[in-house]
Nucleic acid binder design. Structure first.
Length: 371
RNA sequence: GCGCCGUUGGUGAAGUGGUUAACACGCUAGUUUGUGGCACUAGUAUGCAUGAGUUCGAUCCUCAUACGACGCC
């Protein structure tokens, strides 16, 4: 089935939305945070641990699974859910971000984008049709249109041309799409130009996607510009469809963008930070490797209900991370994921109570107190 | 006791008669946003065993002392 978004209520003082999203694998509340599992695994974590953290949808990556193990292997396994033993919903990214992170401008043409296979050097062409074919085979619940995620800074002219191309790619992908149990999202680009964001939204809505993503943020533009880009996108998006802001996961950015009307977020930060020894708390972000934690036998957060906080001390995790033991990375990943999911739980509660601005001010005061 | 070699930071060490003593590890911090996972950036010896001498100038040359390794009695 196609996903279905139900808007339950809008917060009184802001654009924040409380809703639910119905999927093939259950109904989940929004705002929501999706952990990133690029290669059909959220790095260091088992599906059971993800469940314990309260994860709803998780994300996997078309580009990486295309190269390894290949979409046919996943198809023969019976789809991504069976392959990775995840019985919750899965969203696949299209490879559009890899246009930003891996390809050079000269590799981008109307047909698609040329990549060098990082494993064997092969020259590969990823097109909107190919991206959709791969995602159809992966059998995720939500597929993304293949777009061009441009960096920052850029010229207005480049953005204009890029938006038009992204729209043509969205249309090509949608026409090629062929999986009745899968949904397809369009991606809003247009950088910091309101008229281009508006134009992009309007053209995508004409194509009638199952949901809409906001792209081209978190690429070095800074917080103020990021919030503006989200505003310029949400302002024109239909209220009856879910809105997914791609790649954003800094706690304060999640709050600010929920306030601007975003429903879903994803970000590698909780797991990447964890692997590098960092953890988030209501009182800010810390490095577990710092000397002050050597003999700190208290949990990361007394009030956190995650597996790491209920069973292990900072001193122990400090030791594990310094000794480069993967269990330490796993414990911090569990905590950081749970931290962001708890944040979205708080935000949903704040929307119900119409006090999200107060929640934000309080959060900012505590999270940034040390800076 | 005699002979010979050696002594550089928290560790392993490179090196030179002349501005800031290489590098690695460790340590202290910082960065990380639709993941080319376990990376990157910065800081970290006012001093080259101790004392004296030669020299414009010594960690580097000379002598003595201490400590250590090896050999011989």
């Amino acid at each position: 089935m196609k996903i279905k978004y139900n808007l339950i209520k809008e917060e009184k003082n802001t654009k924040a939305r409380l809703g639910t999203i119905e999927t093939n694998y259950g109904t989940y509340e929004t705002p929501m945070f999706m952990p990133v599992g690029t290669q059909a695994t959220v790095k260091t974590m088992s599906p059971e641990e993800l469940k314990m953290c309260g994860s709803g949808i998780i994300l996997a990556n078309t580009y990486h699974l295309w190269l390894r193990p290949g979409e046919d292997v996943v198809d023969h396994a019976g789809g991504l859910h069976k392959f990775m033993n995840w019985d919750g919903p899965i969203l696949t990214d299209s490879g559009g971000f890899q246009v930003f992170s891996l390809a050079k401008p000269k590799d981008i043409c109307e047909e698609g984008v040329y990549f060098k296979n990082i494993y064997n050097g092969d020259k590969l062409l990823l097109t909107p049709e190919k991206s959709i074919e791969i995602q159809n085979k992966l059998d995720s619940d939500i597929a993304m249109s293949f777009d061009e995620c441009i960096g920052f800074p850029h010229t207005r002219k480049y953005v204009e041309d890029s938006v038009e191309r992204t729209l043509r790619w969205a249309k090509r992908g949608k026409d090629h799409f062929n999986n009745p149990r899968q949904s397809l999202f369009g991606i809003v680009q247009g950088a910091e130009y309101e008229d281009l964001r508006k134009h992009c939204v309007e053209e995508l809505v004409k194509m009638d996607f199952d949901g809409y993503s906001i792209g081209g943020t978190a690429v070095g533009e800074g917080k103020d510009l990021q919030y503006l880009q989200v505003e310029y996108s949400c302002k024109y998006l239909p209220k009856d469809k879910v809105r997914y802001l791609m790649g954003v996961g800094d706690p304060i950015d999640i709050i600010e963008n929920v306030i601007r009307g975003v429903d879903i977020f994803d970000c590698v930060s909780p797991t990447r930070l964890a692997r590098h020894g960092h953890f988030m708390t209501m009182n800010g972000k810390y490095n577990i490797k710092n000397a002050c934690f050597k003999e700190d036998f208290s949990p990361i957060e007394e009030e956190c209900d995650c597996y790491a906080c209920r069973n292990y001390s900072k001193a122990y995790i400090h030791h594990l991370i310094r000794a480069e033991e993967t269990f330490g990375q796993r414990l911090l990943s569990i905590h950081n994921i749970r931290f962001l999911i708890r944040l979205t739980e708080d935000l949903r509660e704040a929307i119900k109570n119409d006090n999200i601005l107060e929640y934000r001010d309080n959060f900012v005061k505590n999270y940034y107190h040390k800076k």
